[in-house]
């Protein structure tokens, strides 16, 4: 898959994640999942999924042209 198609897929995934933020199906659910209230557990997992998607974005669709003035060297 070329980079443009990958990037498009990732942008679609971001939009889907944006939609999934609105968890109306858990609105009144007071049960516990992983020891947390269902709504809170959902949004905690949401944060981890967001981090995973960001990792894909960084590794598969990084704007390489912005690194042109990079001077390299050790980083902390």
């Amino acid at each position: 898959m070329d980079k443009k198609a990958t990037r498009t897929l990732l942008y679609i995934a971001l939009f889907v994640l944006f939609l999934l933020h609105n968890d109306f199906w858990l609105w009144e659910d007071a049960s516990l999942i992983f020891g947390l209230p269902a709504g809170l557990a959902y949004h905690a997992i949401y944060c981890l999924v967001a981090a995973g998607l960001m990792a894909l974005l960084v590794n598969l669709a990084w704007p390489e042209h912005l690194d042109v003035s990079d001077d390299g060297g050790a980083e902390l």
Binding site: L14, L17, F18, H21, D23, P37, G39, L40, H43, A44, Y46, C47, A50, A51, M54, L57, V58, P63, L66, V68, S69
Partner: peptide, 30 residues
């Protein structure tokens, strides 16, 4: 207000703020 505050202020930031870094921050840095 309970757990809703996490959805309002935290998980929304977890999606939007890294994207701001990615799309805006990197370009402004450049």
């Amino acid at each position: 207000t309970g757990i809703g505050v996490f959805g309002l202020m935290a998980s929304s930031s977890a999606l939007v703020i890294p994207l701001v870094f990615y799309f805006v921050g990197t370009r402004l840095w450049s």
